[in-house]
Nucleic acid binder design. Structure first.
Length: 120
DNA sequence: AACTTGACGAGGG
DNA sequence: CCCCTCGCCAAGT
């Protein structure tokens, strides 16, 4: 039997559902985790419908640490406000520090490249 | 079936 | 740093 075509989106929602409060993932990162067939753009395309799904859609932001919901149906400040409620800090340019807040699923942890001095 | 449109991202200037 | 260009691929027209 053929697999449900909606499975393409479901896989994205599954990953998003794993993001804990107070952490974020980027569109590109999710595309890498899901592998072939997924690109940052298609992940974004899936996410535009996520507001009606039962997933923490607000925890997905762009690679610069900023919210991309600007001109869409969602007010751009709503996403940021929700994340700030979870403890994420944004600077005056609307960007947060991914070195601090980015979530890495199991099996996708980064190498120890991070300089502790940068976190202070 | 062809063309356009994105909640994107890397790289060059 | 900011700005622009190009690649990416599902969906809508």
């Amino acid at each position: 039997m053929n697999v449900n075509e909606k499975d393409y989106r479901k896989k994205v929602y599954d990953v998003v559902s794993e993001i804990p409060a107070g952490r974020v993932m980027t569109y590109g990162q999710i595309a890498i985790v899901l592998g072939e067939g997924y690109t940052p753009r298609t992940v974004g395309y899936v996410m535009h419908a996520a507001e009606t799904e039962n997933v923490p859609w607000q925890r997905v932001i762009n690679s610069q640490g900023a919210c991309s919901t600007g001109r869409m149906t969602i007010p751009m400040n709503l996403q940021q406000e929700l994340l700030e409620t979870e403890g994420i800090v944004f600077n005056e340019k609307g960007r947060c520090d991914l070195r601090v807040f980015q979530w890495h699923p199991e099996g996708f942890e980064p190498e120890e490249d991070i300089q502790p001095s940068l976190l202070g």
